[in-house]
Design a protein around this nucleic acid. Structure first.
Lengths: 315, 315
DNA sequence: CTGTTAGCGCGTTCAT
DNA sequence: ATGAACGCGCTAACAG
């Protein structure tokens, strides 16, 4: 690059020593107000900013974090990343992005690369197959998103709360035959927890459950709606908006418009394609913020790994 | 971080000098085959990799690039980013992500921050309002995507070719009344170029154009389909798949199923929601690869900024 | 309060 | 072909 000026130049220009400039730059105490002001003036005047690399070499931290999403085009993950980025930038962290494509092997590969790069921390969007063993060496500098694991920091959605909110809403609307379409239990959060919350609600209110757990692709929703519809069914609850998208397509094709749709997930696309849907926002935006904040606190030793649950709310 | 070993340790462990290790690491000539092998053995054995920051400090490049997307949830941009990431990683570049939200001010702000970080290069997804002036200081280290600007490297889609492909396909299917829904001319590529290609095709084949240019939101598609439908209309061409998504929703609601839909853009979602659509793939994946490759070549002084056009092809 | 000195890990002369 | 010495820009330890 060109002749960027250095801390030394600033020192010369403001007639002080390098260390004083350094102190000012880092807001350290022990600098007279007058000197501080003078140095700051020169710094601003020249738009000086210290070299990241040099800093990193001394401080041992290059202020870089990684965000590993499952897929770049995941609607829900995008909403979380969207709030994560500004949070990182505000704190001076550069977030680099990676895609896991739901492959534990890829995650491992990425983590390896990150280890060698001496990165500060990682936000990992969890999925079935990401084991604790895989992450063990990152305990101190990892935040798991949408998943929890013992001993790891995590930001989770309130699966049970979300389903309850939705069920209660449907129930209050008078629905008594609510079918459920979800994800297999191999997926703990989106699969097991949401399904069980559905079952529990049914039991509490003496409703007859009617469900299927095909998977989390849109096509799964589309292909399986029919199988949970009875003549009585008046509402359909989907574990994710992706499933709801598939279900919605089926319903509109079949011209079934007397079925109240509901889903977890508050993505703009869903709202556009099927405005009549009832959704809960699992708090994607808030989750992104918290995950970033937690990671930063953690790598700075301000807090230990802890598990955060984001409360869901009706959209 | 903890006691990562340094080039010095490797030197000691393999019984050579630091400089020799450095030479091996950088594949420089002037090292005997035997020594090289010995050093490489030690390096691999300990999984050693040189400190990025220290390297950056000497070499002036920290091997970090930025990707500024308009929106994280842009379907088309995602497809390009998806191929960009691996390309950057292969070459040892860390890609950090930013969102412009279609705001020139935000772009400017981000570029400022990147300048101060002494970043190597930027891939910027262009949009209306991004002026050459805004980018002038990045001439050498910027690749514009989906937009071109004089003097800047760019990777563009072949708007005219894409429309022609689609129109020809519809024409060959026997359609003679093809309506068009697009984007205002203030958007040069997606708006003006695609619209003009449509008009030109109509003129060449003596078709009567029937179009509207409401904007690029889904709702624009949804709200405006009706206005371009005549009793004769047998096909509808959409400038983008986002518009097509909106149009598709309208058509399905109105139970209009004798209208052939076509659009530029080959996103999985579109294909799922409306399988009967004819699409051209503008070459998002290829664009991502090329953009990354061009940027890398450029920042390494291997090539000057140049304008690349990706050929479109029927999906 | 402030300036001076000594490295951090690496690439780069310059001798050998 | 190889090693010793120097310095990149910065922070930390030590003097004053």
């Amino acid at each position: 690059m060109q002749n960027r000026l250095t801390i030394k130049d600033i020192a010369r220009l403001s007639g002080v020593g390098k260390s004083t400039v350094s102190r000012v730059l880092n807001n350290e105490s022990g600098v007279s107000e007058r000197t501080r002001e003078r140095v700051e003036a020169v710094v601003n005047q020249h738009g000086f900013s210290p070299s990241r690399s040099a800093r990193a070499m001394r401080g041992q931290s290059d202020k870089v974090v990684a965000i590993i999403v499952s897929r770049l085009d995941s609607l829900s993950e995008n909403l979380a990343v969207q709030t994560m980025l500004p949070t990182f930038y505000e704190q001076g962290y550069d977030p680099i992005m990676m895609e896991s494509q739901f492959s534990p092997d890829l995650v491992e590969e990425h983590l390896h690369m990150l280890r060698r790069r001496n990165i500060d921390g990682v936000v990992l969007f969890g999925f079935t197959g990401v084991t604790e063993k895989l992450l063990s060496s990152w305990r101190a500098s990892l935040v798991l998103l949408a998943r929890d694991a013992k001993g790891f920091a995590s930001v989770c959605y309130d699966d049970e709360g979300a389903i309850n909110l939705l069920m209660q809403n449907l129930y209050d609307q008078g629905h008594r035959h609510i079918s459920f379409i979800g994800v297999p239990h191999s997926d703990i959060t989106t699969g097991k927890r949401r399904h069980e919350a559905y079952l529990a609600f049914c039991e509490r209110h003496q409703l007859t459950p009617n469900f299927i757990l095909p998977g989390l692709a849109m096509k799964h929703g589309y292909d399986n709606v029919a199988s949970v519809l009875t003549p009585d069914t008046s509402a359909l609850l989907c574990a994710t908006d992706t499933l709801a998208l598939g279900a919605s397509k089926y319903l509109q094709e079949q011209r079934i418009d007397n079925l109240q749709l509901a889903s977890v997930g508050n993505t703009p696309l869903m709202k556009f394609l099927h405005p009549e849907i009832v959704t809960v926002d699992p708090g994607y935006a808030e989750a992104g913020r918290q995950a970033a904040a937690q990671l930063i606190d953690q790598v700075n030793g301000r807090t230990d790994p802890r598990q955060i649950v984001i409360p869901a709310h009706l959209a």
